[in-house]
């Protein structure tokens, strides 16, 4: 997934769309918005980013999960199998991005890249709703996908690359 920080307006539509799509209880979230401001008046810059699980290729959460509930699914998507999760929160401690939370029902929950939608050929809920169309989702291994094309064209970065997790979420800058 790639997210264009030049277009995002920080409206949080992606957050509420994810909540209603995925039954995320009010008070919790799988995605969230970060505003980073730099400079002094009037020389200012703002970066707005919608963040979520990075679906890392080398993910510490999968490595440290004692039950195997955290695993890689098709296409490298990182998932948690709810009824295998014992809620020990080891993964939460290991994730450098704070992408996971304990669901009030006792298991750990996080972004699934809306696999249930993607399997039906739909876009993830956050991507589909974003009024600025600033998110691109698709197969990074397919050079013809929208996301590959935009990454080729634009400068981009990942978050906390020094953690060595190989994030699969790219921010266009």
């Amino acid at each position: 997934m790639a997210i264009d920080t030049k277009k995002c307006v920080g409206c949080s539509d992606c957050v509420v769309a994810c909540q209603t799509e995925n039954n995320v209880p009010i008070g919790y979230c799988r995605d969230w918005v970060v505003e980073v401001m730099d400079g002094t008046y009037p020389q200012l810059e703002i970066e707005l980013r919608s963040e979520r699980c990075n679906h890392c290729e080398n993910s510490p959460c999968v490595r440290c999960c004692p039950t195997g509930a955290s695993h890689y699914a098709d296409g490298g998507i990182v998932l948690v199998t709810k009824n295998e999760c014992i809620g020990c929160s080891a993964c939460i401690a290991s994730c450098p991005y704070d992408a996971r939370y304990v669901h009030p029902d006792g298991y750990v929950d996080k972004c699934t890249f809306c696999l249930h939608r993607v399997k039906k050929g739909m876009q993830p809920a956050c991507v589909a709703v974003c009024p600025t169309k600033c998110m691109y989702f698709g197969d990074l291994n397919d050079p013809r996908s929208d996301v590959s094309k935009i990454l080729k064209k634009r400068k981009h970065k990942t978050l906390i690359p020094e953690a060595g997790t190989k994030p699969q979420l790219y921010f266009l800058i």
Binding site: G27, Y28, V33, V34
Partner: peptide, 18 residues
């Protein structure tokens, strides 16, 4: 805006939300 920091706070407060 919803941020991770706020989220913790909200969840600890939000009996009403639940």
């Amino acid at each position: 805006m919803k941020s991770r920091r706020q989220f913790i706070k909200i969840s600890s407060l939000s009996a009403a939300g639940l």
